[in-house]
């Protein structure tokens, strides 16, 4: 049995060592070293004293926040309605299907839709507004990012709602709760785990959607992800790139910790 366990464990732990631990150490190492390999805080000092970096971080956070909130607002009702449909499997499939179309293709479609003589501007001109510059704006970036993330928010929420014992909903109705009260007092709190994993699934990638900022945001929108890509692949300053990476990881940890907090209870004597 002992030999057996090692047999299963060995390739897996090798993977952990090489592709999980080593890269993390390397990125942290790069963040804390200068161009000659010496230990230094200077990358972080530079990051936190430069307003462009700080503004970019804040921006990045703000965009990710907006994308997450809008996605949640659209997805929650969707998941709720879906959980009440007949043929749920079919509708679910319809929602998952677009995620199997390559992300780049979908982004590319929006280049056409948002173009100066594209679909949206045709539509706007019809009402006498525009043509407006939509492509390469903040709006376009947020819209497309939301579009891409919606299925990833719907799925965990839908699963959480489906996991709720229908007897609980009957119990609440039995005790006099209206449809909206059932939604607010039973379904919403009990589907929170789904909302939390949805937020995690959307917020974190939203911090790093550099291809969208390039294709749709037209370099006007700079996120942490864009900056990392630029430092690594264009200016080749890996130390600064790693520093931004470490900041991104810390932000990510903060998000994960805040979405996992405990709930509060009414206490009586």
């Amino acid at each position: 049995m002992k030999k057996n366990r090692l047999f299963f464990l060995l390739p897996y732990s090798l993977w952990i060592l090489l592709f999980v631990i080593a890269p993390m150490i390397l990125i942290a190492f790069d963040a804390f070293t200068g161009s000659h390999g010496e230990f230094t805080w200077s990358n972080f000092v530079q990051f936190f004293s430069d307003t462009t970096f700080l503004r970019m971080t804040l921006n990045s956070f703000w965009y990710a926040f907006l994308i997450t909130v809008i996605t949640l607002l659209i997805s929650y009702p969707m998941a709720y309605i879906l959980s009440h449909m007949k043929n749920q499997q079919f509708w679910l499939l319809l929602i998952i299907l677009p995620t199997w179309i390559n992300l780049l293709l979908k982004a590319y479609a929006f280049i056409g839709i948002f173009a100066r003589d594209g679909l949206v501007n045709h539509f706007l001109s019809f009402f006498g507004i525009g043509p407006a510059n939509i492509l390469f704006t903040d709006f376009a970036f947020i819209f497309v990012a939301t579009y891409i993330e919606i299925p990833f928010m719907i799925l965990p929420i839908y699963n959480a709602i489906c996991d709720i014992d229908p007897a609980l909903i009957n119990a609440a109705r039995d005790l006099g709760a209206s449809k909206w009260q059932v939604l607010g007092k039973i379904i919403w709190p009990l589907s929170r785990s789904g909302v939390e994993s949805g937020i995690q699934a959307v917020f974190i990638p939203s911090l790093s959607l550099f291809m969208l900022t390039r294709l749709i945001g037209g370099n006007r929108v700079i996120t942490l992800g864009t900056a990392i890509e630029e430092y690594f692949l264009t200016t080749m300053n890996w130390h600064m790139g790693s520093t931004i990476g470490v900041v991104l990881i810390v932000l990510m940890l903060i998000v994960m910790l805040t979405t996992n907090r405990k709930r509060h209870h009414q206490e009586v004597r």
Binding site: F19, P23, M24, L26, I27, Q200, I204, P205, L207, S208, F210, L224, G225, I228, E229, F232, W238, G241, S242, G245, L248, I249, M252, M256
Partner: peptide, 11 residues
């Protein structure tokens, strides 16, 4: 849970 850019950069 890591963002793609972090995975890409660290690799």
């Amino acid at each position: 849970v890591s963002p793609d850019v972090i995975i890409g950069a660290s690799f």
